[in-house]
Amino acid sequence: MSTAVEVDDLRFAHTGADLPALERVSFRVSAGESVALLGPSGAGKTTLLALLDGRLQGWSGRVSVLGAPLDPDRPPPSARRPDTGFVFQEFALVERSSVLRNVLNGRLGRMSPLRALLGSPTKHDLEIARTALADCGIADLAERRVDSLSGGQRQRVAIARCLAQEPRLILADEPVSNLDPAHACEILALLTGAARTRGATALFSSHQPDLARRFAQRIIGMRDGRIVFDVPTSELNDDATAELYREVGPIPGIGLRAVS
């Protein structure tokens, strides 16, 4: 089975930070897998996902995404970027634009730069955008402005934008932490289901163990910038999960203390 993500001895520190955000991180994700990054706030999940998306530079180690190595010092060539889709915690939509326009934004990397700038999507682009909207159950919202939508609807738009990219790898950073439990399940089912039917690999982060168990085949536990465990979902026991959240006080995000 081919490899979608391969990370070897990755280390990264934000500028000015004393402790690294990621240290000695190594793992691999096979193509077609659905994997959850589980851990408390401040564990380094967001940083790791942004780095895999090619939006962080200045790290060390070896990282390859969809068979191509990432350069630690420069972003990946734009031709390769659409292959990796990203779903953001805060949706990252253009609020004053329509739903369809936001989904078409996912096509921009697949168009020629001139066509993208002139804003003239081909029939093919429109068809893919409409299919993505239908798959996310929001075909009827196409002409609505995003600022008139609910949180659950917004995340559906964001997932449709990601699908319109025709990604082979879908990265999702806490995609449901802004939603209530019922919507959270719906959205994660949509995200992992869409990845499966398109044969894409899914790597999503969550701080909720039950959601990770339900929607991932494998769970990678992270804490203080390191990987604590990496197990198939069936082998995840409550002790390991408890260990992950041990001593994380009432204020999450304080993390970044040395593992004793």
């Binding site: 734009s78 970027r81 253009v94 921009l108």
Partner: peptide
């Protein structure tokens, strides 16, 4: 949204 479009390859 700028980061999202950068991620999409724009």
């Amino acid at each position: 949204p700028i980061a999202a479009l950068e991620s999409a390859g724009a």
